[in-house]
């Protein structure tokens, strides 16, 4: 009984912590999404081409558990996507951000791992950290790339999406007609050939930054829910066990009384 009471105390405390953190995460997200979105919108003008060839999956997960199904959802998306790609005969690689994703995917797909990043959430995630990850991604020169992460929708809901991310390979091998249609409405300064590499690196950075920030917010929101449910369950369990305990105690007292009375009447 004491164990259950303690458990309830812990889950309640974790919920409080998550609530406090959620407010902060929410603020960070509101501040940083306008930063990441412009370049994403620009790249969205490019057409998506389904091509064969190697693919890199970037799974964005959290470092800590006890936050509902957010990490499992990401791992599942990666697993399904990976199976589909490999069925088509495309070589697949995985990059993982966050310890939980590593733990879940290691057993089946450990040999596909190219790079993993853990303990990203110990300090608040910064654009510098995102750039480090993006740089590793750019250095591995993936032919195609998908970033799997949780998109924050509201306190109680989230979407796990595999975001198609344009790679340098795709951009350079794209059909020139399509390319011109998408990009020539803009005048680039310096000219597009000079600026493109920088812009693409910035794009990688923003994709990673946006995904991680959203995933973190989702994680905290889901942890709040999970912990609230856990506290509730612990409360119910405590109630049941308490009833059982009181009944047993009452039964014991009654038998003892019976014994005393019958003993007294025998004398």
């Amino acid at each position: 009984m004491r164990a259950i009471k303690n458990m309830q105390k812990i889950t309640k405390a974790m919920k409080m912590v998550a609530t406090a953190k959620f407010k902060k995460d929410m603020r960070t997200m509101e501040n940083s999404l306008p930063f990441a979105n412009p370049v994403l919108n620009l790249f969205q003008r490019l057409p998506v081409e389904e091509k064969a060839g190697g693919i890199t999956y970037v799974a964005v997960t959290s470092d800590k558990g006890l936050c509902g199904g957010v990490n499992t959802a990401v791992a599942k998306q990666v697993r399904l996507g990976l199976a589909a790609e490999e069925a088509k005969g495309n070589a697949a690689k995985i990059m993982v951000v966050g310890g939980k994703g590593v733990a879940v995917l290691k057993r089946l797909y450990g040999d596909r791992f190219s790079t993993t990043f853990e303990e990203c959430s110990k300090v608040p995630f910064t654009f510098a950290a995102a750039s480090v990850i993006a740089e590793r991604l750019a250095a591995s020169k993936p032919p195609r790339c998908k970033v799997v992460s949780n998109e924050f929708k509201s306190m109680v809901s989230y979407d796990t999406i595999a975001k198609h991310t344009y790679t340098v390979d795709e951009a350079t091998n794209m059909d020139r007609g399509e390319w011109t249609k998408a990009m020539d409405v803009y005048s680039f300064e310096p000219s597009i050939y000079e600026v493109w590499q920088d812009l693409h690196e910035f794009y990688y950075g923003c994709v990673i930054y946006g995904s991680v920030i959203q995933s973190t917010t989702t994680e905290t929101a889901q942890r709040m829910n999970a912990m609230e449910n856990a506290s509730k369950n612990a409360g119910e369990m405590y109630g049941k066990v308490e009833l059982q305990y009181n009944r047993a105690r009452q039964a014991k007292i009654t038998t003892e009384l019976c014994e005393i009375i019958s003993g007294a009447s025998a004398v």
Partner: peptide, 9 residues
């Protein structure tokens, strides 16, 4: 105008 850095909008 939208003027943003990673940490602050």
């Amino acid at each position: 105008l939208t003027l943003t850095s990673p940490g602050e909008a």
